[in-house]
Design a protein around this nucleic acid. Sequence first.
DNA 1: GTTATTATTGCAACAATGTTGCATTAGTTG
DNA 2: CAACTAATGCAACATTGTTGCAATAATAAC
Lengths: 124, 124
Amino acid sequence: MKRRTTPAQTAILDLLKSSGSALSQDMIEQKMKGETDRVTIYRVLNRFCEDGLTHRIVSDDGKSYFALCHGCQGNHHTHDHFHFRCLTCQKVECLSEKVQVSLPQGYRATNVNAWVSGYCAGCI
Amino acid sequence: MKRRTTPAQTAILDLLKSSGSALSQDMIEQKMKGETDRVTIYRVLNRFCEDGLTHRIVSDDGKSYFALCHGCQGNHHTHDHFHFRCLTCQKVECLSEKVQVSLPQGYRATNVNAWVSGYCAGCI
DNA sequence: GTTATTATTGCAACAATGTTGCATTAGTTG
DNA sequence: CAACTAATGCAACATTGTTGCAATAATAAC
Ligand SMILES: [Mn+2]
Ligand SMILES: [Mn+2]
Ligand SMILES: [Zn+2]
Ligand SMILES: [Zn+2]
């Protein structure tokens, strides 16, 4: 299944790049003014994740956010950083700080989903 | 609005106490064998949170889990600890370890939602 | 440039989680 | 017991996300 270049995909990728933050499907739909079907947006975002272009973080607002991978080398992906969601401007950012947690004896971690919500510098 | 004691509420509270882990609505519905309507379960759980009996954590499996408050004094609640979800046995635990994260300059945190998923000691 | 192949899209339908309106039931108080 | 009203059950709805399928269009082959 070789990927094809389509307007929807390049538009969504451009949005992710230019926004500099993580976006949810509904944010993208708004910014595209409904020109692209919401199912297509979901499928494009899932494909980006499969291809290692983005990572998905599930927020406590009930939505998935998609952020461009940054610092992932080839097949080796690590997304064990915190994310911040501003309750006023809704912006979602990847924080640089890595999640550090020691599990009970015998536990094995395979994934991390860590959020802080509050108010960003511009919205205090 | 004074609370009343009802079979549904005591049953759900007993389940939370005896399970020793965080439970989701569907887990509770299963354990109660469908004797209580799912809307009632949701309402009871929300009431428990309002009353400071439980706290809610939203998982990346798309469900909310409810855990008994433990160590919260009166009105002062702090639920800034990590949670672990076992991908095999589905159990959700509050970890003792507190979330430590330093935000960018000027940011203010109001809430934390931190998860680690993987395999617990019994499911490795 | 034309044709063939099939990845991608749009639409409808569906699934899962959670909430709300409203009539009925049942704790609590006197 | 009677009155009051919190809590429940049911239907309906909202939101987020996925799947089936026919139509479209990007790419490769000729
Ligand atoms: Mn990555
Ligand atoms: Mn608490
Ligand atoms: Zn902000
Ligand atoms: Zn387990």
